[in-house]
């Protein structure tokens, strides 16, 4: 389960709208226990999409480096990434699956394709996509 505060959820969604017409992306930091994220989120870090594209994203490397340091200062780790799908539903694309780096990470996708944003969370291990429940507190 991925647990976001209301404020974190709103910051993620706002960053996705701010990125339009391109895809937007950012990183999630949280505690890790026994080699796996607990699902708690200590902080969310909006990042630049260095692809500046409506079809793909790459988390800007320096934004990742800064987020990694800030996470470390919080006693947390980078435990996942979010990005927006501007015209498709909130499910990992073949590109998302192919480029997924870490099977322990949370992959959050925010679809802006219809009226209200839809945020869903997945784990991606090899070709296997597993949805993880998302809880927004508050």
């Amino acid at each position: 389960m991925l647990r976001l505060t209301r404020d974190q959820y709103l910051r993620i969604v706002a960053h996705c709208y701010d990125g339009l017409p391109d895809e937007a992306c950012g990183l999630l930091a949280g505690p890790v226990a026994g080699g796996a994220p607990t699902g708690e989120v200590a902080e969310v870090f909006p990042a630049r999409n260095s692809d500046a594209s409506a079809r793909t994203y790459t988390v800007d490397g320096r934004d990742y480096l800064r987020a990694d340091r800030e996470a470390q200062a919080l006693g947390a780790e980078i435990v996942g990434v979010w990005h927006s799908h501007t015209h498709t539903h909130a499910y990992p694309s073949p590109t998302d699956v192919r480029q997924a780096v870490d099977p322990t990470w949370f992959y959050v996708i925010v679809s802006l394709a219809q009226g209200d944003p839809v945020l869903r969370t997945y784990r991606i291990e090899g070709e296997a996509i597993t949805e993880v429940a998302t809880v927004v507190d508050g």
Partner: peptide
């Protein structure tokens, strides 16, 4: 020296 994965998708 920091080693970080390139994080990307579509």
């Amino acid at each position: 020296v920091s080693i970080l994965p390139a994080v990307a998708g579509g």
